[in-house]
Design a protein around this nucleic acid. Structure first.
Lengths: 158, 158
DNA sequence: TGATAAATTGTAATGATTACAAATTTATAA
DNA sequence: TTATAAATTTGTAATCATTACAATTTATCA
């Protein structure tokens, strides 16, 4: 709601983030579209009209920075790495942030009922948990931001 | 479990799918790795050693075919289009298969408890529902397979 | 004010996936 | 069995979001 400069500046400094014009504008835009789910492209399109010479890399960098600072959170909608399994009962998937391993678990999807969605036709329900698997809890080392690295060493058990 | 030729052939014909050597081998591989979450690359790596000249496009085509026939199901792990929202209480996301619109809804994440995961360190819980939003239920037309098309016309409300 | 660390920029690369057209294979009917 | 039409496979090129990286600019603080 409140997206005044003062407010945004405070938000940044609260998270020990440096000031920059681009940062301010991106944060402002996020607040101005609080109820949306923006992607880097949309933010870039909108702000490059206001900030000539704005680089898309800056958008990506800044979003990552904000995410690490927990100012924003990522919502994963589409996906580039689709994995397949034989059709079977729907179950939840636990993805280890460290090793990338995927572990199935049982969830009672029918128990997840949302009155809000009574007008919606629900065809699929997916539940994803993320965190550390037992193996990685033991050998908990560095945890890089890049997903690419994790994927390399990822092994799928379950 | 049973991945004999006869069994696989029956599976194909049950779904009105034509026979082909590649199809058989891919389906066989899926049955042989029933508890895994395979991606196209992994299947290609394994089978191209058995089927010289196998094309990766065939893997993609076949997996799509199997998915449409509901022989297999896709599990979306990583993602290429990340969307961001301000950090707030965690909520579920409904994604409309037709228009791509995203609608938030409240879920009591704490109510989703999985005893199976007692050894796991759960850091994030995500719930995704997919289907048709009220608007698209009304104007329900063709529904193409390609996600790309949908994205083009996607608009985010919520 | 100046030094230094951090942020921004632009370009090139990556990596999963898709588009497409030509060649091959399968199913079917004569 | 063979011809034929339709479906499948193949290979290459393109797409698209994202990342890597090095050079330039900017912010912060002594």
């Amino acid at each position: 709601m409140d997206s005044s400069s003062d407010y945004l500046l405070k938000k940044l400094s609260q998270k020990n983030l440096r000031f920059s014009f681009q940062r301010m504008k991106i944060l402002e835009y996020l607040y101005q579209h609080e109820s949306s789910h923006l992607d880097a492209e949309e933010i870039y399109e909108a702000l490059s009209r206001v900030i000539p010479g704005l680089s898309k890399t800056t958008i990506y960098n800044t979003l990552h920075t904000f995410q690490k600072a927990e100012l924003i959170q990522a919502v994963d909608i589409e996906n580039s790495e689709t994995r397949y399994e034989l059709s079977a009962s729907r179950h939840g998937h636990f993805i280890c942030k460290q090793c990338g391993g995927i572990h199935d678990f049982e969830v009672d999807m029918d128990a997840i009922v949302v009155k809000e969605l009574s007008q919606f036709q629900i065809e699929e329900k997916d539940v994803y948990f993320r965190g550390l698997c037992p193996d990685c809890i033991r050998t908990q080392k560095e945890s890089t931001f890049s997903k690419k690295n994790k994927k390399k060493e990822a092994k799928d058990e379950s």
